[in-house]
């Protein structure tokens, strides 16, 4: 099998490749943050004039909150914020498809490239 000779990449091409990669990575990581879709979807439950009792805190907890410098009003958001773990089966299916699809795609393409490598390495002599 003939040896594969890769083309030489110029300075400009290298710079463009780096920029593309940067945009892709920072974009993918930051877009969910910008759109406000990112996780930590913890929302506090609003309440008027919360007291330690209405927040469900016992004596020891109250002592600790006070030591940390909180009063019921300032601790309220921390205490009542909860994740929303309800999900639709559709979303779960989407996740499974994306992850399994990703690994399947990658292993397939890798295998194709790998066969070339092995062929050139061991049969090319």
């Amino acid at each position: 099998m003939a040896r594969y000779i890769p083309p030489k990449q110029g300075k400009m091409g290298q710079v463009i490749d780096v920029i593309v990669l940067l945009i892709m990575s920072i974009g993918a990581l930051y877009i969910p943050l910008w759109l406000g879709l990112a996780g930590s979807s913890k929302l506090p439950v609003p309440a008027d004039e919360p007291t330690w009792e209405s927040l469900g805190q016992n004596a020891v907890m109250v002592e600790r909150w006070t030591a940390l410098g909180y009063d019921p009003a300032s601790a309220h958001d921390l205490i009542t914020a909860r994740f929303d773990y309800s999900f639709t089966w559709g979303a779960l299916a989407l996740m499974v498809v994306v992850i399994v699809g990703y690994f399947a795609l990658m292993l397939r393409l890798s295998e194709k490239e790998y066969r070339e490598v092995i062929a050139e390495k061991f049969d090319g002599k």
Binding site: D17, L29, G39, S40, L105
Partner: peptide
């Protein structure tokens, strides 16, 4: 997925796009 599902999908989508970029463009070098 519970609580951070969007990041999970975004991140894996990123790797899919980047894999295609590598296979069809970058690997020639």
């Amino acid at each position: 997925f519970l609580g951070y599902g969007t990041q999970l999908i975004a991140m894996v989508s990123f790797y899919i796009v980047v894999s295609l970029w590598f296979h069809f463009w970058r690997y020639r070098f």
